[in-house]
Design a protein around this nucleic acid. Structure first.
Lengths: 207, 207
DNA sequence: TTGCTTACATTCATGACTGTATGTATACAG
DNA sequence: CTGTATACATACAGTCATGAATGTAAGCAA
């Protein structure tokens, strides 16, 4: 095979990442071999080893394509003073993620891989803890929004913003899991948005 | 090795199941080999193959040791007329499960295996759907309790019992996941019970 | 143009892991 | 007391999968 230019090489790298995503999804991470990934990307294992040290490194590359953008979007929708009241901000933030899952196949696949196609042992155990940290950050941001909501007097509940934020976080975490597992969509996918709205309405003071 | 009596054989079978649980937990299901399991159980692979067709069958055996009792307990705590009001019934039902996770090492390990040490592909994909079905049943039971709560006029919310039940189910599903992933216990394990109580209080009409 | 580096492809040695086949001693039925 | 089925252990064959070693042609800088 001929030597490629730098741009070609980067393209190959992306092809390998995309291929790995497909293969991980179909076979699970553990049972996916570098040969499978290489074949799916139309290269040889040599090429894969050139671009990545091993399978975990490919996994990390895949994950970063989802979680870094996710954090950013959450920051945006939960930012102070974007025209929405705090409860609506939280609602929008959650609905945005659902919307993204519906529209973005890549993101959907990556969530599926991380939730039900991966075993968190050895190298991967660290990933779980990082994800937990990210979750903590998100919970904090939601809590801040609830604090503003309380200050603005639109909260129906007598619970603390902290308790509300944790409850919301757990609800949404469960929803994402069910969204992913509910392959035919009947149970959760089609009504995910409604579930988020109900969840938020439960906390909104009725006029 | 000498031929065992029937009771001995059953004991061996249990030892293999216990061994598989330990090995699955430590290495993940995919990367666990029948040799590992056999070694942990102090038998040879021959013995394992005698008792089980393959690895998935061992997995099923492990799972059944948790989920069948779980359903039963839920049925009990949510049964009509056991002296508690419906909201307290739901609370007890969830707290019981948390309590069981705290006390029962076997159950804790099995949850951990099923949530973060298993890749749901091929044979295992079916397990997910079965679990989803079980979840639907539980949600229905919770919904019935909410309907009774509504009838008794102790519900604070204007949401439908169906929406409330789904919200509770998702919350609890998220909580179990976090409980399992939160290995050091700081984030969720120690306050799981409080989180359940907050969740229920949010729906209880204040006097 | 030369020579070094890049971006892969190819080959090889080695080591799991699986499933099955076979051996074997004993429990148990009759 | 004897035959058969049981409950394993042992041995074997075949298939992947890995990682490293080596090959190679082309890009690119000087």
């Amino acid at each position: 095979m001929v030597r490629k230019t730098k741009e070609d090489a980067e393209l190959t790298r992306q092809r390998i990442i995309d291929a790995a995503r497909e293969v991980f999804l179909a076979r699970g991470v553990s049972r996916s071999t570098l040969e499978h990934i290489a074949a799916q990307a139309n290269v040889t294992r040599g090429a894969v080893y050139w671009h990545f040290e091993n399978k975990s490194q490919i996994f990390y590359a895949i994950r970063d394509r989802v979680f870094l953008p996710l954090i950013d979007r959450m920051d945006d929708t939960l930012a102070v003073g974007n025209g929405y009241d705090p409860l609506t901000q939280i609602e929008n933030s959650l609905c945005d993620t659902i919307h993204e899952l519906n529209e973005n196949i890549e993101m959907r696949q990556i969530y599926e891989i991380m939730m039900i196609k991966c075993e968190y042992v050895d190298d991967f155990a660290a990933v779980l803890q990082q994800t937990l940290n990210n979750c903590s950050n998100i919970t904090e941001k939601i809590q801040l929004a609830y604090e503003r909501a309380q200050y603005e007097g639109i909260l129906a509940s007598n619970l603390t913003p902290n308790a509300l934020a944790l409850d919301t976080h757990l609800f949404f975490s469960g929803l994402l899991h069910m969204w992913v597992k509910d392959l035919d969509g009947v149970r959760f996918r089609f009504q995910a948005i409604d579930l988020v709205k109900s969840h938020i309405n439960l906390r909104r003071k009725t006029l």
